[in-house]
Design a binder for these strands. Structure first.
Length: 563
RNA sequence: UGGGGCGUAGCCAAGCUGGUUAAGGCACCGGAUUUUGAUUCCGGCAUACCUAGGUUCGAAUCCUAGCGCCCCAGCCA
């Protein structure tokens, strides 16, 4: 049985990761491959270009593209652009950008539902001719009233009995722009008494005299999602059409439509199969489009790519890596249970990847001056500091050392709490990769810590190891460091499930989600490229922002010291 | 109230064609190593699988009846 160790186990040469976990989608795929129903699988990621992609989309993208890669199939990037009033080119561009960043391979060519409008319309004429669709001329209100309720069946539209010829003539008039918006709608003819409300003659085409971002004025008749989506899938020979749980009730219509069209010779079998999975819900995060828009428009964040936003643009600017997201998606799995993923899983996935790939640097976020009284004025030393202590092959860099240094304010305590082993009067610590110093006092007038140095304690020199100190703190030379804005981001919301119940989610905003400090950075950080990630030793991971010199905190290091 | 789903540890999630001690991850708690109170490494962490009955030598896995949560009544997707 291949569920546990089959194709799922191939993660590529050099990969040492555990085999992917079994899940119900892989099982369905493997069954279809084993039975010969499909020789190769085709999936798709079908965003509507009416907003920015977020972490929830990342789950779907990684799932669809991941499965295709894993089983040697293909995954299409297809824009579901069937509603011209809500869609824009700007969103198309940002979505392509995000998909590329995630590393998804869609073959370089994005597909568009709007490219299929002609074919979809031909399908509609076929449905009309074969008596499976009719033009309804009720108002939207009448249609709603006649749909019935959960417990009461609907009632047939007075226009339900129109002849195929009459319907065809009307449909063509609708297409040709002879009728205003809302005058008529094309409906599938199924069953107004169905216990599944989605089967009570769903609308499949509506009139919209609106310009489309790609087809411009070519159409004034646009297909509805429920109708368009199955056809898009079938045109592209999609084998497994993955979507979220709320479309479960829609599946009978999906199958009904494709069966009718296949009966009419418009498609060949086997037809695509829709499979639903639970959408991502992340604690301390909000993912609904409505709420995201509100955060931006009301100025609670600094735009769509604010590093606190769960958009992919924001995540990227925050310093999250696509590889980290991939690990995250692998860990949370995919199932049908509506669940809340703890934010710590995302953070841990990021730490894991960043720990592996981020060079180490020293940065003092809350500077306090330290003066070494027995170090001559003007004397300078160059300390050799490893770029990654676990990866000697990454080499070392020289970091200048002198009489005056910046250290972290937190690393000094005049009156230390119990268990504190950093700097306090009388105590010794090592200045990381440099010298051991002894604190001899604190000068309030100049707000500086006074120390003496053990000159024979320099890291890497013979005998330096005989100084046994518990504390090991980072530093930068005041004469060589440069100041830079560093944004210390924290979660945007202060509660696990923002806005749960009736509560306004804005009330749950974390007032301290962004704190900017003026940090002192070691010289090597001047050369950081935009987007590049570093570990600021003992602090966390930070990424260079597009803003000059600024860094964004991606995630802190774990800290097991309980004060 | 009709229909469609889902219920395995604090949070995810395997297992479900019944059969050794109920995978794995996150979180948490110990301990070792450590020039990051980081990383890494070891160890601990469900006599229990929504509840109650039943079938069976044996059930998280099969049957019955309950209970709980989510989704559906757009000319949105």
């Amino acid at each position: 049985m291949s569920t546990k160790t089959g194709a799922a186990g191939k993660t590529g040469a050099g990969a040492s990761r555990a085999p992917s976990a079994s899940n119900f989608i892989r099982q369905a795929i493997e069954a279809d491959l084993a039975s010969g129903k499909h020789a190769r699988i085709v999936t798709r990621f079908p965003p509507e270009p009416n907003g920015y992609l977020h972490l929830g989309h990342a789950k779907s993208i990684l799932l669809n593209f991941g499965l295709a890669q894993e089983y040697g199939g293909r995954c299409n990037l297809r824009f579901d652009d069937t509603n011209p009033e809500k869609e824009e080119q700007e969103y198309v561009d940002s979505i392509i950008d995000a998909v590329n960043w995630l590393g998804a391979d869609y073959g370089g060519t994005a597909l568009y539902a709007s490219d299929y409008f002609d074919f979809m319309y031909r399908c509609a004429e076929y449905l009309v001719s074969s008596g499976n669709a009719y033009v309804d001329s009720q108002s939207a209100e009448e249609m709603r009233a006649n749909r019935g309720s959960f417990t009461a069946p609907g009632t047939d539209s007075p226009y339900r009995g129109r002849s195929p010829d009459e319907n065809l003539a009307l449909l063509r008039e609708m297409r040709d722009g002879l009728h205003p918006d809302g005058a008529h709608v094309l409906r599938a003819k199924i069953d107004m008494a169905s216990p599944n409300i989605n089967l009570r003659d769903p609308a499949i085409y509506r009139i919209k005299h609106a310009a489309h971002h790609r087809t411009a004025g070519a159409w004034c008749l646009y297909p509805m999602y429920t109708y368009a989506h199955p056809i898009e899938d079938a045109i592209e020979s999609v084998t497994h059409s993955l979507c979220t749980l709320e479309f479960e009730d829609q599946r009978p219509f999906y199958d009904w439509l494709l069966e009718k069209l296949a009966d009419g010779g418009l498609f060949e079998r086997p037809l695509p199969q829709q499979i639903e999975f639970a959408r991502l819900q992340l604690t301390y995060v909000v993912l609904s489009k409505r709420r995201l828009i509100q955060l931006v428009e009301e100025g609670h964040v600094d735009g769509w790519d604010d590093p606190r936003m769960p958009t992919l643009a924001g995540a990227r600017r925050r310093g999250y890596t696509s590889e980290g997201l991939r690990r995250f998606a692998e860990r949370i799995g995919v199932a049908k249970e509506n669940s809340w993923i703890e934010f710590s899983i995302l953070e841990d996935a990021m730490r894991e990847h960043l720990n592996d790939m981020a060079p180490r640097r020293m940065a003092v976020l809350d500077p306090l001056k330290l003066v070494i009284e027995n170090w001559p004025e003007g004397k300078e030393a160059l300390c050799e500091v490893p770029n990654h202590p676990q990866k000697p092959d990454w080499g070392k860099r020289p970091v200048p050392f002198g009489r005056e240094l910046w250290i972290e304010r937190d690393d000094f305590a005049f009156d230390p709490p119990k268990g504190y082993f950093r700097l306090f009067p009388g105590n010794e610590v090592r200045l990381r990769y440099a010298y051991v110093v002894k604190c001899i006092g604190y000068d309030a007038a100049s707000d500086s810590v006074r120390c003496t140095v053990h000159e024979d304690s320099r890291s890497g020199t013979p005998g330096a190891d005989r100084y046994k100190v518990k504390g090991n703190i980072h530093w930068v030379s005041t004469a060589h460091a440069h100041a830079a804005p560093v944004r210390l981001y924290d979660r945007l919301f202060g509660v696990p499930q923002p806005g749960s119940g009736e509560r306004d989610f804005l009330l749950d905003l974390n007032p301290d989600s962004k704190k900017t400090v003026s940090a002192q950075l070691e010289p090597a950080l001047r050369e950081a490229r935009v987007g590049e990630s570093f570990q600021f030793e003992r602090h966390g991971y930070f990424a260079r922002d597009p803003d000059p010199n600024a860094f964004n905190r991606t995630v802190t290091l774990r800290d097991s010291w309980v004060k």
